[in-house]
């Protein structure tokens, strides 16, 4: 991750104070794809806030992640309709399959997992979304197959200069 991206974001917030923290976190995640260790520390220096505070705020919100996204990004919907249709078990199945927790990325950089509150496709519940493609009426049995299909396909933007840190 180029440091310049981070610098560029911070330059947009000259003389900022603590109320700029969340917009900065959002912008940094937009640029880098996640909040790196270095960026948390640098944001702290920029705002004169301790790193523990930045980390505390960032972990409060589901939207922030601390590992780069995988080549395939899986969102499991945990909204009300999906919950009623058994999304808790779906999430468990995905976690088991990938052996990661929400917010994490597999060590080979293939998959990352995110839990979202409602994805706006309640009619298709329970639903998961991979790289923006929706998969309707998922069951614990079909989760593995869905994930496998992406494993075979690889990333939609394969050949890019993706790095893992």
């Amino acid at each position: 991750m180029a440091k310049n991206d981070l610098d560029a974001v911070l330059e947009r917030y000259p003389n900022a104070s603590r109320d700029a923290l969340i917009p900065i976190l959002q912008d940094v995640q937009q640029e880098l794809g996640y909040l790196s260790r270095d960026s948390v520390v640098r944001i702290g220096e920029h705002l004169n806030l301790p790193a523990s505070k930045i980390y505390g705020v960032a972990t409060f919100y589901n939207q922030f992640r601390f590992q780069p996204q995988g080549r395939n990004h899986i969102q499991v919907c945990r909204g009300t309709a999906c919950h009623v249709k058994g999304s808790a078990a779906i999430l468990d199945a995905v976690k088991r399959e990938l052996r990661i927790e929400p917010g994490q990325t597999t060590r080979d950089g293939q998959f990352s997992l995110e839990v979202v509150a409602c994805i706006g496709a309640c009619g298709l519940a329970p639903v998961i979304c991979v790289n923006g493609e929706f998969h309707a009426g998922v069951t614990t049995k079909t989760v593995g197959k869905i994930i496998d299909s992406y494993r075979r396909k690889g990333s939609p933007n394969d050949g890019s200069d993706h790095e893992t840190t």
Partner: peptide, 19 residues
């Protein structure tokens, strides 16, 4: 010093250090 703060949210909240 601010070595520790609240981490996470809801029933998963805990006190911890940066990262």
């Amino acid at each position: 010093v601010a070595a520790i703060d609240f981490i996470g949210r809801g029933s998963k909240t805990k006190i911890g250090t940066a990262f």
